[in-house]
């Protein structure tokens, strides 16, 4: 029996393109766990795969779009949300999820993110945050913590990082959560909750990058980073995202925001009807 035939017996293999496995991510990379939790959520919700679209940008986790067995786009750098907005508005029957990294969503695509959140476009955005640009060799990015070492900050980073959950909440997301890849069950539940909800949902997942960020900052192997997460993460639902900064001593995780708001698609439909009525009245 070949490895692929063996993999086809995996209960989640029906949602994955088996011929592309094993995936390219490094040993202990969190992206594999995020993909697993995502696919598990699809399986638990029994999502109709023909009405589901995954969009991803450039970055390590951008490969995820190529691994899931639904319609998927691996789009240009920073534009997954722009493309996903277009897909959702063109065909509101589709469920659209964006899987991308911190550099793609918040540096190159920062404006798309805040404006999609402001408009409340019906998207589920899952951000794999590994604190640097892993794929291109470990440059510092918008989430790199102060004083940490990357290829472009060999003497320590002097830029203040984004607090992604605060940014998403302030921009108007209806659902904001943060988990580490260690919290697999809670992450999968969170993704399920987000997929069921309407509006702009944002889930930040803290993911280890043992080969690049971890090596430069002497965090040890992937297993050591996971143990660190177990030690310093603290679950606090409903916590003020403004105070949920990530430090070396503490990572606050949990569901921070869960509110209801009319989505952009709904308002657009209402607007259409209103204008058509006006025109017909002459």
């Amino acid at each position: 029996m070949t490895v692929i035939q063996e993999f086809e017996k995996h209960p989640l293999a029906k949602y994955l393109r088996a011929e592309r496995f094993p995936h390219i991510w490094c040993e202990g990379c969190g992206d594999g766990i995020i993909l697993h939790c995502f696919v598990k959520a699809l399986d638990d919700l029994a999502v109709d795969i023909d009405k589901f679209v995954v969009v991803s940008g450039i970055g390590c986790i951008g490969r995820a779009a190529g691994y899931v067995k639904c319609d998927s786009f691996h789009t240009t750098h920073g534009r997954p949300i722009a493309l996903a907005t277009g897909i959702k508005l063109a065909n509101p029957k589709l469920t659209v999820a964006v899987l991308s990294g911190d550099g793609d969503l918040f540096a190159i695509g920062g404006n798309h993110f805040i404006h999609a959140a402001r408009r409340n476009v019906d998207l589920t955005v899952i951000c794999s945050n590994n604190f640097n640009y892993g794929m291109t060799g470990g440059q510092s990015g918008p989430t790199t913590p102060l004083d940490s070492y990357t290829t472009t900050t060999p003497y320590g980073n002097i830029e203040h990082p984004f607090n992604l959950v605060h940014l998403a909440a302030a921009a108007g997301s209806v659902y904001v959560a943060r988990w580490t890849v260690l919290h697999v069950r809670r992450l999968a539940e969170s993704i399920k909750k987000a997929l069921r909800k309407k509006g702009f949902k944002f889930i930040e997942v803290i993911s280890p990058c043992p080969e690049i960020y971890g090596r430069r900052n002497k965090l040890g192997k992937a297993i050591d980073i996971m143990k660190l997460y177990r030690q310093i993460s603290e679950i606090r639902h409903g916590y003020d995202p403004a105070k949920a900064e990530i430090t070396r001593e503490k990572i606050v995780v949990g569901e921070f925001i869960d509110i209801e708001k009319p989505t952009y698609g709904e308002l657009l439909q209402k607007q259409f009807i209103k204008i058509q009525q006006k025109l017909s009245e002459g």
């Binding site: 995936h23 202990g28 594999g32």
Partner: peptide, 8 residues
Amino acid sequence: CETLCPDF
């Protein structure tokens, strides 16, 4: 272990 395995 199934969910935590990054490599399926």
